[in-house]
Every structure is written in structure tokens, then in C-alpha cells.
């Protein structure tokens, strides 16, 4: 087996490992980083398969832009939870605060 075949097999196994590892990380931040590394490995595989167009796009979009968007989302859902907590504590509302307990089921 030529060297490129060995490298290809290692990279494909690494892909499967990344895909399974996303589920077993302890925090979501680690999951996003594993996802970005998955995209980077995919980019190298595209180069080995002789399609540089796809490699450039995968590097820019997968490892770059979608990773950044995930991190921004993580930032935002933390902040939203904090803000909601603060507002709730500030105004002293309880959880179920509707006039008829929501039995009206409006449109």
C-alpha cells in the first residue's frame, strides 16, 4: 500500500472518531471544537482526492465560518439565560403567571 493510501485510511478513521467524539464531550464548547477539527480533516481529504475547489470552500466555511457562528450562538444562549434570570429576579414574577392558567389556548 502506498503512503497516500495509509494516510487516507488514517484520516478516514479520524473522521469517524471525530463524529463519535462529538457526542461524548463534556461541554458544548468542546463539541464545537471537535466539529471544527472534523471540517479540517475533511478539507485534507478533499485535497487528497484532487479537488482543490472543495478544499478551499470547506476550510473557509466548515472550519472557519460555521465554527465562528456556533461560538457566537453559545455566547448568545448563555447571555439570554442570564438576562432572563435577571429580569425574572428583578420583577419578582413566578413561572406560571397567566390569568386562567393557559386553558384558553388562543390562536
Amino acid at each position: 500500500m502506498a503512503l497516500t493510501d495509509v494516510v487516507k485510511i488514517i484520516l478516514l478513521v479520524l473522521l469517524v472518531v471525530c463524529a463519535i467524539a462529538v457526542n461524548f464531550t463534556k461541554t458544548l464548547l468542546q463539541a464545537v471544537i471537535v466539529f471544527m477539527s472534523y471540517s479540517s480533516v475533511m478539507c485534507i481529504i478533499w485535497v487528497l482526492m484532487e479537488s482543490p475547489d472543495l478544499a478551499i470552500t470547506e476550510a473557509a466555511v466548515g472550519a472557519g465560518i460555521s465554527g465562528v457562528l456556533f461560538l457566537l450562538t453559545l455566547r448568545r444562549i448563555r447571555s439570554e439565560d442570564d438576562r432572563r434570570e435577571e429580569e425574572r429576579r428583578a420583577s419578582g414574577k413566578s413561572d406560571k403567571d397567566e390569568p386562567d392558567g393557559g386553558k384558553f389556548e388562543s390562536r
Binding site: 482543490p52 475547489d53 478551499i56 470552500t57 473557509a60 466555511v61 472557519g64 465560518i65 465562528v68
Partner: peptide, 17 residues
Amino acid sequence: GPGGGFSGGSVMGAGLI
């Protein structure tokens, strides 16, 4: 050569970010 609309556009988008 290799490249084109989607690749170039993504790199420029990354540059803007």
C-alpha cells in the same frame, strides 16, 4: 484554475468577519 464563485466568496466572507 481551482476556485470559482463559492470558494472565493467564502474566503472573502471570512475576511469580512
